[in-house]
Amino acid sequence: MLLNLLFPLPALVVGILIMRAAGVPTTAWGQNLAACVIGILLYFVLARPRVSRQGETGLLIAGVLALGVLAATWLDPGLQGVHRWLMLGPVRVHAGALVLPLVLAALAGLERAGRRGASTLLAIATALVLALQPDAAQATAFVAGAVVLLLPRSPAEGRGWIRLLPLVVLAGLSWLRKDPLAPVPHVEGIVGLAAEQGHVWGIAAVASLLLLPVPFFVARGRGDGRVGLALGAYIIVTILATAVAHFPVPVLGQGASPILGYFVAIGLLKRFQGSVPRGGTESPAT
């Protein structure tokens, strides 16, 4: 649904206007504009509905590759012992913000196919890498989404909730190491920067952030309902983490990776909404 493309626009516009008013260089907020254009293209690539479970093979491969991207952050020298980024030319990519929606979609595909062991291993491996980076915001947000997907769906699954324990433990451990990096005003401190411009800008900044999770919960009842809830939980926790500690504010703050990751998430949401089983009818929500 093209309406979903409108939800990130207020945060993008408000963030850019705040950065311009604060004298942030054009090269910084210009990355947000470029990421928006690329993100829209990604949305249309990913939003194509799958026609069968066999059609999820590419998505599952993408999930494993996404885990590889997270692990590749150790190929970068890092910043003060923190390994969250990859250098692609002049651009520093925040790996977790970019690829975690893909991992959550891969978990959803594995769960639908009944491959619970594979989905559990992928979830734990991803949470472990995030905890080691360390990236407490992304680790906690990912685990929140993964728990939604991996929760037992019926009493027949017995003690299926036990596989959630390692995820919760790893999310908790990710907070034990103090983040040594100083916050950047137009990245982690963009809401405070907005408030400095006046109450109206502060309210606009917060309101635009509140819009970001909306499409994932409006989508309930169409396609695979748990995917929307999982991605929505991921987005909400990512936003809430910025109020607890110094983490990049998604979409509103400067940074291409969270913007691209958000468009990937709404593209995957559309993909699962339009999922059609081999019989040709829409699959029921789960």
Rank of each mutant, 00 (worst) to 15 (best):
C36L: 14
I61K: 09
L176N: 03
V69A: 14
V168R: 03
P77I: 07
C36T: 15
L2R: 10
P25L: 11
N4C: 00
A123R: 04
G261S: 10
I235H: 01
G267E: 05
G189F: 02
G228P: 09
G253P: 04
I124R: 00
V82I: 15
G78R: 01
P248V: 13
A72H: 01
K270P: 03
P155L: 10
A105Q: 10
A136M: 11
V51H: 11
A11K: 01
P101Y: 07
R116M: 13
P25G: 14
G223C: 10
L150D: 09
P284S: 15
T286E: 14
L231Y: 06
V13S: 07
P166F: 12
V99F: 06
G63I: 08
G30T: 10
R226V: 02
F263R: 05
V129I: 15
A205S: 11
L110F: 15
A204P: 00
V206R: 03
A207G: 08
W85S: 02
P185R: 06
G192V: 02
L65A: 15
L132D: 12
W175I: 03
I38K: 01
L122F: 08
H246M: 01
L170P: 00
L240R: 01
I203H: 07
R20N: 07
A146I: 09
A66I: 05
I236F: 09
R222F: 10
V249F: 10
L210N: 01
L149D: 10
P185W: 00
L231D: 09
I61S: 07
L60P: 08
L12Q: 08
L60T: 12
R159D: 14
G221L: 11
R84I: 06
I40L: 06
L269D: 06
A146F: 10
V276Q: 15
L167E: 08
A21G: 02
L42C: 13
W74C: 02
A182E: 12
D76Q: 02
I16Y: 04
A205I: 03
W161A: 14
K178F: 12
A195D: 06
A230K: 00
L164K: 04
L211G: 06
A11I: 07
P166A: 06
L130W: 08
A105R: 06
S119E: 13
A125M: 11
P152H: 12
A108L: 11
L269I: 08
P180N: 07
H83G: 02
L70W: 04
W29I: 05
A205G: 09
V51C: 00
G198P: 06
G261D: 12
L67N: 07
A285Q: 11
V187T: 13
A72F: 05
Q273N: 13
G274M: 06
L130S: 12
L2Y: 11
L104D: 04
G89A: 00
G96D: 04
L269A: 05
G225D: 15
A34Q: 07
G15H: 00
L59R: 04
A136W: 13
L67F: 12
R278Q: 12
W29Q: 03
L6H: 06
I236L: 15
R163Q: 14
D76M: 00
P25H: 11
A125N: 00
A285C: 12
L75S: 14
L209F: 08
G158Q: 10
